[in-house]
Design a protein around this nucleic acid. Structure first.
Lengths: 330, 330
DNA sequence: TTGAAAGCGATACCAC
DNA sequence: GTGGTATCGCTTTCAA
């Protein structure tokens, strides 16, 4: 059974193809009765205008594919998955259809973006830990509106939405100081991670403002639970010399917590995570953490992208920082 | 800067539009040198054939949109998210682009599927707990190939890929019996859940084969960690009368475990989960569980869907069961 | 091997 | 209001 077309429907109903087209375009002049009749028949027969054909006939203005690509770097990260879900909800609420590019390996990124050139996506949201500048260039030459989440473009060519990670570090420092911590440490995810760096800076600043020495800087290599657990097992003695630790992610903190259970010397370690993923609230962890404003991040990102798509000259071409909040569970 | 078209490229190079088209279509007759020249120039100038225009010109055969929709019911479920990620990887490996329909509310499902009529997706993968038969009908009338994951169509109209949940129940029963459990219970997710029911049946059968009485049947209402925790708090006394419990999901089991930590009467309860999500392996839980074969589920689902898309008369129109395995962590 | 021309499904600009 | 018609970007006969 072939798909129904406007022409077929028009013939069936004895009206013109133009009438059918107009019936589906609000704000066009068409006899109300006729419109109702066509719409009704369309529903019965399962006719829907072909979005791509229509996008083809009107390359400019509002008639786009309504496809928005999401570049996802790491589905294993609970936080990124969570943000992903929020983004898709937000896109759908705006009548867009999210298409996913799952790019585990950075090398695959260029390839993947090239494919986007073939699909006339309205825009791209990038939720990837590291995005080579070449990818940004590609989107630019393909004339693809691009918005970055959780990281910024060093060259400042595209807008970016982020949690105010510096503030997150400050909040963590304040909390640990209130808890009477004297020998604080910071556990980074990726050494070159933009988020890790900003959190570390804010953390150090918070300590400095209280007249304290800089924290001990540690690095787990990745942001995952596994990485935290492995770090805890390999560097238990280092951790034992601390009484407070701010981790660059909740997963990392939970890994540390799991590892610490088996090491008596680490029972007194006061932990703070970052993200506030659902698992952090589970009784096994009850992790105090710095919550990222996930909904707002998603809303802002989609909002700015769609502004850009609509041709708005993206007033806020730069980085938008959204404030995190302390979630105290101890 | 407007997007480059085949005609523009042809003019730039002084060749015909046909030549450009042929250059991108393997197996067409075109002077090798000319083809190379065109391909090279295209790469330089960032030209890519418009997939939708090409799909438009060839409604039949291989020239499809290469879009495959994934219907997701519950992103909060760690297992479903995990399966989702596997599906997207598999689709991409086959040159398809996953588009996501996030349908939190069942009411939104019909609406969402209607939108798919406008986007000429090649097919649909449904990863939803409950799918009203009307949705299946809709896909059928829209001529959309559909494959169900984790649940089947009562009417048997579309293929379905599932873990052999009956076997999962058997494995859980065998394990608990080996552990010397005498008063086993089964904790369902949703009461009417197909998966819960099959697992319960297999579980009861396994016990019966060993000459044991049926397990106590319990129901948490949902499959989430929260539901398990709440159940444990409200029905601690019921659980205290058991010495073994098979939970319909890992999340549920972890919720029970978290609740049990605070109830001395539940320390002796032997738990078995189902799914083997990554968190089940974390030291805080070390949950013995029945692993679902996620990769194989994804592979089979995509394979069968694409067969169907390619016009194959879907030989295996019915339910495909893939075997689960026991992951023993105690 | 190659170019010209006819669609594919839908929209918008035309006169009527 | 309404129905023809050119057009969007591309593939594909069909001649040359």
């Amino acid at each position: 059974m072939a798909r129904m077309t406007a022409a077929m429907l028009a013939d069936r109903l004895g009206v013109s193809r133009s009438a059918v087209s107009r019936a589906f375009t609000p704000g066009t002049r068409l006899a109300p009765a006729k419109r109702a009749m066509i719409l009704e028949a369309a529903r019965e027969l399962g006719y829907h205008p072909n979005v791509f054909a229509s996008a083809l006939s009107t390359p400019d203005s509002r008639s786009r594919s309504h496809l928005v690509a999401i570049l996802m770097g790491d589905f294993a990260s609970p936080f990124q998955s969570w943000l992903f879900a929020a983004l898709t909800r937000e896109l759908q609420a705006h009548g867009k259809l999210p298409v996913l590019l799952n790019v585990d390996e950075v090398e695959a990124l260029d390839q993947a973006i090239l494919r986007l050139g073939s699909y006339q996506v309205d825009g791209v949201l990038a939720v990837v830990g590291s995005l080579p500048p070449s990818c940004v260039s590609q989107c630019l030459t393909l004339a693809l509106p691009l918005v970055l989440l959780g990281r910024s473009d060093p060259a400042g060519r595209v807008p970016s939405i982020q949690t105010d990670n510096h503030l997150a570090g400050r909040l963590a420092a304040d909390y640990l100081l209130r808890r009477g911590v004297h020998r604080p440490g910071f556990l980074a995810g990726r050494e070159d991670g933009e988020a890790s760096r900003a959190r570390a800076a804010g953390f150090a600043e918070g300590l400095a403002l209280a007249g304290r020495a800089p924290p001990q800087w540690l690095c787990a290599g990745r942001y995952s639970h596994d990485a935290g657990l492995a770090f805890c097992r390999q560097h238990g003695d280092t951790l034992a010399s601390l009484d407070g630790l701010f981790c660059a992610s909740d997963a990392l903190a939970m890994g540390i917590l799991d590892g610490a259970r088996q090491q008596p010397a680490l029972q007194a370690l006061t932990l703070v995570g970052c993200d506030d993923v659902p698992q952090a609230a589970w009784p096994a962890y009850r992790l105090t953490t710095i919550a990222q404003p996930v909904s707002q991040l998603a809303q802002q990102a989609v909002h700015q992208l769609l502004q850009h798509v609509e041709g708005m000259p993206l007033a806020t071409s730069h980085v938008t920082y959204l404030p995190p909040t302390l979630i105290c569970r101890s």
